[in-house]
């Protein structure tokens, strides 16, 4: 039994979640403050993967990063980076595809915090970064954990977008969801069942853990 698709999936989900946490936090904070036409456009672009068929997103990414065309060709020639049929391509696709799951809950939680919390911190002489780190983030912990778990779990289950840009290369781009499909195609239902069961268990434990944590955290005055 080849377990490499499971490890590859976990590695992809961990890297994607970490990158999205680093990028998603400041983006969510920026989106939560005020409104402008530009912010509305950016928010719509971030939300698009929620409603767009994954194969459509994967197709456009395939076109954009194909080494035969514009951006993909330039990346290949200048930095020797290839996103098509490579693990970094999966990371890029997952990053874009899972971004709304990281940004959405954090943005909503930040918007629900009373504006006076940050204002009180500013009047004490604290910078925006100190306020973000010491006041805002600790008070949105349940939503932050929800965002992390949703992003991780969603990346575990990706299929269309990773198949389009990564293909089905063993130990490189064959993640668990593709391995399930591939096993069924080969009529190897035992392997398909093993991959599926492992994915089901990981996801179930994560979601149960999230619900238990958030139930405990619901005692917070802000919930």
């Amino acid at each position: 039994m080849d377990l490499s698709p499971i490890w590859l999936t976990l590695k992809l989900a961990a890297i994607t979640t970490l990158l999205l946490l680093i990028v998603g936090l400041p983006v969510a904070w920026w989106l939560s403050k005020g409104r402008s036409f530009f912010k509305t456009i950016i928010e719509a672009v971030i939300t698009m993967p929620l409603v767009l068929p994954p194969s459509v997103l994967g197709f456009y990414l395939l076109l954009a990063f194909s080494p035969q065309h514009g951006l993909g060709k330039w990346l290949q020639n200048t930095f020797d980076i290839q996103f098509v049929f490579s693990f970094q391509g999966l990371v890029l696709a997952s990053f874009i595809y899972s971004m709304p799951f990281m940004v959405g809950p954090i943005k909503s939680a930040l918007q629900q915090l009373p504006a006076s919390l940050a204002q009180a911190s500013y009047t004490l002489g604290k910078t925006k970064w100190q306020t973000f780190k010491s006041i805002l983030i600790p008070n949105i912990k349940p939503s932050l954990l929800t965002a992390i778990v949703l992003t991780f779990a969603h990346t575990l289950g990706e299929f269309g977008v990773v198949l389009m840009i990564g293909g089905n290369i063993p130990r490189v781009t064959r993640v668990a969801s593709i391995a399930v499909y591939d096993s069924v195609e080969r009529m190897d239902y035992a392997a398909a069942n093993t991959y599926s069961l492992i994915l089901f268990c990981i996801t179930f434990v994560m979601v149960i853990g999230l619900f238990i944590f958030n139930k405990y955290q619901a005692k917070s005055p802000l919930e």
């Binding site: 009373p114 006076s116 919390l117 204002q119 009180a120 009047t123 006041i135 008070n139 005055p221 802000l222």
Partner: peptide
């Protein structure tokens, strides 16, 4: 120094 009407205390 600012005392807010809603206190603006930090829940954490």
């Amino acid at each position: 120094g600012f005392v807010f009407q809603d206190y603006a205390l930090f829940p954490n």
